[in-house]
């Protein structure tokens, strides 16, 4: 069977992402990568927790002065919803419905862009209102490194979805691109997993004190 072979919804295999050997290898390799990502973010979280509120003088803003619940709540809801919409996309991928899959992925990208917009607003707000910058304190460096790394992951995830969508617009689903869409959506879920810890550990715990 050729990876570019044309399918119908009746001949489409049950797990198209793992039907070819290439798909299986990608699946394995990608989970190994996610294990590594977990360790990467752990080191950033550990550094942030150790350096939280470590500022050189009293006129620097602390976590409890800056963070605002409504903004974090909106960002959390946007990212959580985008995780569900990418699940919908994979549901249609498994049912061999390319158009619906594309529609849900575009919605996912839209929600991700909205999240990113709020994050840029947030950072801009901290820099100009509180003079909380990357170089102002150890707290600032560790905060922007951790949250910025997550933001960079969102950017990469959005770019990944968009490239796949553009490249495969007229191609339709086959066993060559199904694993690609599947892994991009796994990556997107992982970004949401990291955000769960960011909103809990950085923002909510930061607001409690």
């Amino acid at each position: 069977m050729d990876a570019e072979q044309k399918f119908t919804s009746r001949t489409w295999p049950e797990s198209p992402e793992k039907t070819t050997l290439e798909g299986k290898n990608k699946f394995l390799g990608f989970w190994l990568f996610l294990g590594g990502e977990t360790v990467l973010f752990a080191s950033l979280f550990a550094t942030y927790l150790a350096l939280k509120d470590k500022v050189p003088s009293d006129d620097h803003a602390l976590a409890i002065d800056m963070f605002e619940l409504p903004l974090v709540f909106i960002m959390t809801m946007l990212l959580l919803t985008s995780s569900l919409t990418s699940v919908y996309a994979m549901y249609h991928m498994k049912n061999y419905n390319f158009q619906k899959m594309k529609t849900w992925l575009i919605i996912t990208v839209g929600l991700g862009l909205a999240f990113l917009g709020f994050e840029i607003y947030e950072f801009n707000h901290y820099v100009h209102e509180y003079h909380h910058t990357f170089t102002s304190s150890a707290f600032g460096s560790s905060f922007y490194t951790l949250v910025g790394f997550h933001g960079a992951h969102v950017v990469v995830g959005l770019g990944w979805f968009l490239l796949l969508l553009i490249r495969n617009t007229n191609r339709g689903l086959n066993l060559y691109n199904a694993p690609k869409f599947f892994l991009a959506s796994l990556y997107w879920h992982f970004i949401d997993v990291v955000w769960v810890f960011i909103f809990t550990v950085v923002y909510l715990m930061g607001m409690v004190g």
Binding site: L28, L34, G35, F41, A42, A46, L49
Partner: peptide, 26 residues
């Protein structure tokens, strides 16, 4: 199975890293 192995290994190292940073390193 492999996915769980990779992720939980990562989570274990993550836990040790955070514990170490909070108690010894800084």
């Amino acid at each position: 199975g492999a996915a769980a192995l990779f992720l939980y290994s990562g989570a274990l190292v993550a836990f040790i890293t955070i514990l170490t940073f909070l108690t010894i390193v800084w």
